[in-house]
Amino acid sequence: MTAQDVVFGLLGVIALGSALLVVTTRNVVRAALWLVVTFGAVAGCYLVLTAELVAWVQVLIYIGAIVVLLLFGVMLTRAPIGPTDQVDSGNRRVAVLVGLATAAMLVTLVLQAFHSTYVTLDQPGTASLLGAAVFRSWVLPLEVLSVLLLTALVGAITLTRPTVGTAGSR
């Protein structure tokens, strides 16, 4: 049990705990905020795993952009601020079962496979290393990704336009 294991374990516990709160809290805004905590903990996990660039990108994009976007969504759909009872659907009991089943299956599988595998964290995933890899081996997917982002942008604007084609709405 190395120090890295301990730290990773603690961060994992934080991540799981806050994730649980995300899916169970009755306050929509609080859910988004607990999501921030989860993302932060996951970023910490990346750091322990010496994936530095990924950790910072996680913070930047997930916490910085995605959570903000989700909060905007909460605001624009007039979600109730403050605790509310209407937060879980009728599917809840089945969802618990499915969740537990998934967890059991995956954890069993994983523990059986990797119960004696150890990794050495010697080579950090620095920006220069990853940047070289991305711009050499993964440059095509990168360009496609950028086109995809453009498409998403255009699509989002098109979807949220006011009604199309009637007079005076342009």
Partner: peptide, 22 residues
Amino acid sequence: GNVQFYATGVLAAAVLLAVAAV
């Protein structure tokens, strides 16, 4: 017509299939 109902079906079946395959 409920999306969650459909998703539940898909995921539950996936879990069952995975267990069965194992």
